[in-house]
């Protein structure tokens, strides 16, 4: 039965390759195209633990982390000034992931210790967010947790325990949700295999989220030929207004 599943998996996904440590995984779509009808994507990440690779795996834990492209982000804090709320202090994180989803078979702190998790940046608390200027820890943490909270509110950061299903300690699968506001760029889906707090292996799959077709053409024109884009926008508006004005007369 298990063998059949494997054969089927390899037949369907020829790109599937064993990681160096007895882990294999793939994702249902490696290229996510944002087209006019895009309202988010639902991906399936699946894989298997190779039992006969010199590993004696029992009761393994699987953690899946999907990371979006890193980009600089400003976090601003409002203060009340003369009765109104105004942005005052700010902090820039130089390389904040635009998307971060973590799923695991059990709560992360039961799977491994803080140090291991931190090394591999697994879990919200362990994402390394670099800043340019020195800042006292309390302030840094306030801005840091605000960043994660806001990303969560945008639907771009989420974590779930027990969202990874593991069948017979061999096959695993999890769902990956990309919302409509997902940033464009290169993503990595990393699978980590743990047992008794030890990291036994990992596997990384790259995926790309990109605008395509009409959405890509409009975006490229706006950014690469902004003057032409502006003139086109004006032309469309004038033509539409003119047509409406002429039609209304009759």
């Amino acid at each position: 039965m298990m063998r059949c599943a494997f054969i089927l998996m390899f037949a369907l996904f020829p790109g599937l390759a064993w990681g160096q440590t007895g882990l294999v995984a793939d994702i249902s779509e490696r290229t996510i195209e944002i087209r006019y009808s895009f309202s988010g994507a639902h991906l399936l990440l699946f894989g298997a633990i190779k039992k006969d690779a010199g590993l004696d795996v029992e009761n393994p834990d699987i953690v899946v982390v999907v990371r979006g492209p890193a980009m600089p982000v400003v976090v601003r804090r409002k203060e009340r000034i003369a009765g109104i709320w105004v942005n005052m202090d700010s902090l820039t994180f130089i390389n904040a992931p635009g998307y971060y989803a973590v799923a695991s078979t059990r709560p992360l702190d039961e799977i491994a210790d803080r140090r291991t998790l931190r090394t591999h940046e697994i879990g919200f608390n362990n994402i390394q967010l670099a800043i340019q200027t020195a800042l006292d820890a309390e302030e840094y943490n306030a801005f840091r947790s605000a960043f994660i909270r806001n990303k969560g509110a945008e639907g771009l950061f989420f974590s779930s325990t027990a969202n990874v299903t593991l069948a017979e300690d061999v096959l695993f699968r999890t769902d990956v949700e990309l919302p409509a506001n997902v940033p464009v760029g290169s993503y990595a889906a990393d699978v980590y295999l743990f047992q008794d707090g030890q990291l036994l292996g990992s596997h990384s799959t790259d995926l790309v989220v990109d605008k395509s077709g009409f959405e890509r053409a409009v975006y490229d024109l706006a950014h690469m030929r902004p003057a032409l884009y502006g003139l086109l926008a004006i032309f469309i508006a004038v033509a539409a207004g003119w047509t409406a004005g002429t039609l209304a007369r009759h």
Binding site: V73, V75, K78, T92, N150
Partner: peptide, 18 residues
Amino acid sequence: GLIVRPGDLYSISPVLGS
């Protein structure tokens, strides 16, 4: 919108020109 205390005092935005 200016006077009432916002739900979250912190907000995030991308750095422009990056």
